[in-house]
Structures are given as C-alpha cells and as structure tokens.
Design a protein around this nucleic acid. Structure first.
Lengths: 114, 114
DNA sequence: CGTCCTTATATTTTTGAAAATATAACGGTG
DNA sequence: CACCGTTATATTTTCAAAAATATAAGGACG
C-alpha cells in the first residue's frame, strides 16, 4: 500500500491554478518549443493545454510562456524566465514535500509498507 | 496566495480509497451514531456516503463501522476499533504532513506569503 | 501568393461522476 | 401489528467537466 500525493497552489479560494498538469506542460514546452506538441506529448488536446496555461498566467498576473504565431514552423512557445523559475521551484517544492509526507506515512501506517 | 493540500491513500494503483471524505464521514458517524445523519451533516446523500464507506472497507479488507438495521431509532452505525484507529492516525498523518508541506511552500514561494 | 503549422478562441458534443429516486428489509416501540 | 428511521442496494436522472470540432489569423518560405 502506497500513497498518492497531489499539491496545487490556488491563488485565491476560487480554485487551483497550478498543479502537476501545468508543470508537466511547462516541462514539455521547454523541450518541444511548442504548446501544441507539449499537449500532444501528454495525450492532452491543444485547446485544453492552452486553457490551462492561459488560466495560470491570468491568475499569476504574468506570462509563463512567450508565444509566436506564424513564421517558421508556424510559430511556437517557450518559457519565460519567470516560467522556468516557477517550474523549477515547483519541482523542488513537490520533491521535498513528498519526502516529508512519505516519512509521516511510514510512521503512522507501518502496516502499509509492502 | 496559499496552497491546497490533499492526501489520499490508494490501496493499489486503481484509485484512492481513503481521503478527507471518508475521514469526515467517520468523524460524523462517531458523533451521530448514524451513517445517514453523518452524510446529511456534510451535505452528502446517504447513498454516496454508503458507497464511500463500503468501498473503503472492501479495499481495506476489514470493517471501519458496525451497522445495525431496525430496532430503536431504526438502527445505526458506529466505529469499530480499527475504524477509530484509522481515523485518528489519518488525522495525525495529515496534520503533521501539512506542517511540513507548509514549510516547504514558504521556502520556495516566499512571494506568496500574504 | 499559396502552403504550413502554429497560436487563439468559440462552440458543440461526449462522457463520467454526482445526485436523486425507488424499493426492500429490519426490529424495537407504542 | 403498524410505524418509524435506519441500513442496503439498484436504477434513473442531472449536470458539469472534459473532449472534440470548427474557424480564424499570423508570418516565414518556396
């Protein structure tokens, strides 16, 4: 018996805006330089990916990605400095939190280990 | 800006079986001695409450509640020793985990504090 | 200037979860 | 023995979230 562990960062009380979904999108945008490709990589429709990024940027008040339309290869997306920073900090935050929670879990549910 | 924090404990990879919902149900059953009343207390239909408890007990392989049908006041539900233990340990697990995650969050997202 | 592939939305369709409803059994109590 | 409020389920209905589809615009490039 293991445990699953999700963290989302809501801006206000009206819902989460940053979680594993946005984070994975940012990672994929960083390698593909394309939101379209990033979404496809994770089996997500472009329109959903766009909505997620759009909502996160709106809540944060600053862009996570820079976009271009038209031109070579039709355009593309890449991370802003703030976008990369947010992604990296989110990664570290989740990894560290996970270690702590895993420790708590093993303490309180010893019968669950294997 | 705050963060939200959910922990669920899945038995296998096929989904969570114990989370805040079951936990709150157990707490309410403990004060009301009734699953019906417990569900109502949290704006949940009886049938949904029953399904949640039923699924958790099935996954765990032992009962969290003892039920009686008919008799005084129509019957009722109360916690088994294992049910109370699980609930108490879940409470402690979540509280301790939350403190740790809050610390991580403040470290990585200092701009989010107030 | 027509072709590509992308971003950017709006709109429609699908689907899966939640809610509501229905029915039965049970057993003290008046 | 009828009543009441509960557990126990199965079935139907509602509804909101997700997915799919559609349409437009942009700009390098051949």
């Amino acid at each position: 018996m293991a445990f699953s562990f999700y963290i989302r960062i809501p801006f206000t009380s009206d819902g989460a805006f940053f979680g594993p979904g946005v984070n994975e999108l940012l990672h994929n945008i960083d390698v593909a330089n394309s939101l379209s490709a990033a979404a496809t990589m994770m089996g997500m429709s472009y329109s959903k990916g766009w909505k997620i990024i759009h909502a996160a940027e709106k809540k944060l008040g600053y862009p996570l990605t820079v976009k271009s339309i038209g031109g070579v290869r039709g355009g593309g997306s890449s991370l802003t400095g703030e976008g990369r920073s947010f992604m990296e900090r989110y990664d570290a935050f989740v990894a560290e939190s996970r270690r702590a929670v895993q420790g708590c879990f093993e303490h309180y549910f010893p019968e669950a280990q294997q």
